[in-house]
Design a protein around this nucleic acid. Structure first.
Lengths: 341, 341
DNA sequence: TTGTAAGCGTTATCAG
DNA sequence: CTGATAACGCTTACAA
């Protein structure tokens, strides 16, 4: 049985009384304005806080002080290891700064994203880190106008004038596709979730296309956008690729880790052998890439660095930096393993 | 460049004026006490809110009303797919209820956990969902005394009197070990992170031991607690198992998905073939279990159900349910695949 | 059905 | 260095 005692929670006033000083003085202590406090008073306050087990009320502080110590983190898929690793890094730094993270998962649904934006606004978050669907630009702009610092992760939207952090998708994709070409693959497919204006996907696709345009004939190139909400769509598209490239040396460039997983499941189901029947190279480097048989050739994103950088940017903004928006581009790394020959 | 206009944010008073009613009336509208409102007034308020793009301030509401609409979720490893799936389910339900989730990752560090508990207390969270280290019981009790509803996930601590949600570790482990015995494995190892009082680990270990005690001779049973903070500890222990069971038909029972991953990496590094050189069966059913070669035999936990149930419990408590604590035990499922012969 | 007024627990302003 | 006192934006008796 949970007992909720109903004695009033102890407030700053209780502490003040116990320490024999005024609320104001205690508030100064809480605000770490130690230089304005006599060492002696400070000790008394410390003792009182300890004795009363006082926990300051952030809602009250926020109401008056205009700071919530809350950061919103809106992600598209919290189940994706890529997301999770960024989150992990971000979360640690937040804690060190005394901030808390409110995590929101949108499933790439613009309506859900919008609901979250409003909800976060109601909590008066100080900063917002968002992996956006790109369909709520207007609301993001509004947020920024109302004192929350917005930083984009992974996907960028230049018009918005926000800081953004991501990897160099163009270079990484070019490198991967060139690698495939150098291995004499004759038919190369690009598999992705629907591009739908998502910058990351668009960049990867266009790099894919431009490299192939330079090197091969157009029949070499196959682009598939699979709808993951329909169970069989990915498989159908894989079958299509299979049928239309009989006898060719085939490879797939997978636009992210989730797609890779789906693809591999489908291949396994069809008894396809990697890399003999079909090679695969994928963006993102999930834990299992290394233990898969054969080990997966991947493009690894510096997730920890992304997470750190993102948080650093938000805090810079929260602390008042008004420099022009930074578009931070980190390098991704091609890890050649054995799913490509 | 982020422009932060400094015009005062619009408040409930602005809405009241615009609608030609009082703050109170608007507040009633916000509190969805529609039956106390004339249809006409309600429309005027709606219009005013729309026109002014008013966003209620939860901090102010919370300060007065004693509800923060915040739920804290403290997990041990946000990078673990098991965690992430629960989180996903929990998060969705929270949104539907108008609550937000503050996610905190402890890395199983009691000090970090404590810091988070305090931080969450400062935000006056209405509910706490925690996968606890078990080393901060005193503080959890305090929280409950101060009107925060606490629910334990995965790991339980009966003395505390909180609701808890988890799977039937005993039965699931027994089933798995019996399965191994039925396949005539001669040496069976239990690999886990340090037991250290964590209920889940303790339950799995004791079920493992009791089944083997009934069936085999004591030399059949090997227990290893690996320290994952030391890179080579797991590998050393694997080598020890290997050396001490030469010529035997060997199997490993892995206590969770992270351990399984580490184990498989180590085996791969040593050129060990699963299941010929060594079988493996593991708690948790990560995405990659199915595509691994050979596909992994696992014990799958109903993560989505766990997430849903956890949230349901917290809300019940938040809404004032004072029934005795429920210890909810969900079934886990043995998925026999091919890492065991 | 609606309004008045008194807080909720802080911080900020201004004196001392 | 310290202390009154007025906000902050909302909810909730209590009235009307």
């Amino acid at each position: 049985m949970q007992k909720h005692s109903n004695k009033r929670r102890t407030t700053i006033l209780d502490v003040a009384k116990k320490a024999g000083v005024s609320k104001t003085t205690v508030s100064r202590y809480l605000g770490k304005q130690y230089d304005e406090l006599a060492a002696d008073t400070r000790k008394k306050i410390e003792a009182a806080i300890e004795a009363l087990d006082y926990k300051p009320n952030r809602m009250a502080a926020g109401l008056k002080g205009g700071r919530s110590y809350l950061i919103g983190m809106v992600v598209a898929d919290i189940t994706n290891p890529f997301t999770t690793k960024i989150l992990h890094a971000a979360e640690t730094l937040c804690r060190n700064k005394g901030y808390s993270l409110m995590v929101c998962n949108t499933n790439n649904d613009p309506q859900v994203e919008r609901d979250y934006i409003f909800m976060l606004q109601s909590h008066r978050i100080d900063g917002l880190i968002i992996n956006t669907t790109g369909k709520n630009n207007q609301f993001l702009t509004q947020m920024a106008e109302q004192k929350t610092s917005v930083v984009l992760v992974d996907r960028k939207i230049p018009e918005l004038g926000f800081d953004s952090i991501g990897v160099d998708n163009i270079t990484a994709t070019e490198e991967a596709v060139q690698f495939l070409i150098s291995k004499n693959y004759e038919s190369i497919a690009f598999f992705s979730e629907p591009i739908d204006g998502v910058s990351t996907r668009r960049e990867r696709l266009s790099a894919f296309q431009s490299v192939l345009a330079m090197h091969g004939n157009s029949s070499m190139q196959h682009v598939y956008e699979a709808d993951f909400s329909q169970t069989l769509d990915l498989e159908d598209k894989l079958d299509h690729f299979l049928k239309s490239t009989k006898g060719k040396k085939r490879a797939i460039f997978s636009a992210n880790g989730v797609v890779s997983l789906g693809l591999i499941k489908a291949m396994k189901k069809r008894g396809l052998v990697i890399p003999d029947d079909m090679a695969i190279i994928g963006f993102d480097d999930p834990d299992w890439a290394e233990i898969h048989t054969p080990a997966l050739t991947t493009i690894s994103q510096p997730t920890t660095a992304i997470g750190r950088t993102v948080i650093e940017r938000v805090f810079k903004r929260i602390e008042g930096d008004t420099a022009p928006p930074k578009d931070i581009v980190l390098p991704a790394e091609l890890l050649v393993r054995h799913s490509t020959i």
